Simulated assay, not measured.
Amino acid sequence: MQHSNPELWSLAGLTAVSGISALLWPAIAWAATGDIQAYTRTESVWRGGDLVPFKPWFDSGILLFGPALGVVAPFVFVAAFALVLMSRPVRALGPELRLWCACYLGYLLLFLHPQTSTFRMLLPLFPLALSAALISRSRAYRGTVVVMFLLLQIVWIVWLWAWAPLPGGGDYPP
Rank of each mutant, 00 (worst) to 15 (best):
S18H: 05
L83W: 03
E7W: 08
V84E: 00
V71S: 12
C103M: 14
R98V: 11
L109C: 13
L85S: 01
P53I: 01
V72M: 13
S21T: 04
L93G: 08
V84C: 15
V145M: 14
M86C: 05
Y141V: 09
L8H: 14
F119T: 08
V71C: 07
L112K: 05
T15E: 02
L99S: 04
D35F: 04
A140N: 13
L11H: 00
A73F: 05
S117Q: 09
L130I: 02
M86R: 13
A73V: 05
T116A: 10
L63T: 04
S136H: 08
I28H: 13
L123Y: 05
L128A: 11
T40S: 14
Q2T: 11
L112G: 02
L130N: 06
F126E: 01
Q37N: 15
A32G: 10
V90F: 09
M148W: 09
F149Y: 13
S21G: 11
T118G: 07
L151D: 12
V76P: 09
R142K: 12
T33M: 10
F75S: 09
A29L: 12
A68G: 08
I28Q: 06
G168S: 02
L23F: 07
F77R: 02
A16G: 14
A102L: 15
A31I: 06
N5L: 15
V84F: 00
H113N: 13
A73E: 01
L128Y: 01
G170E: 00
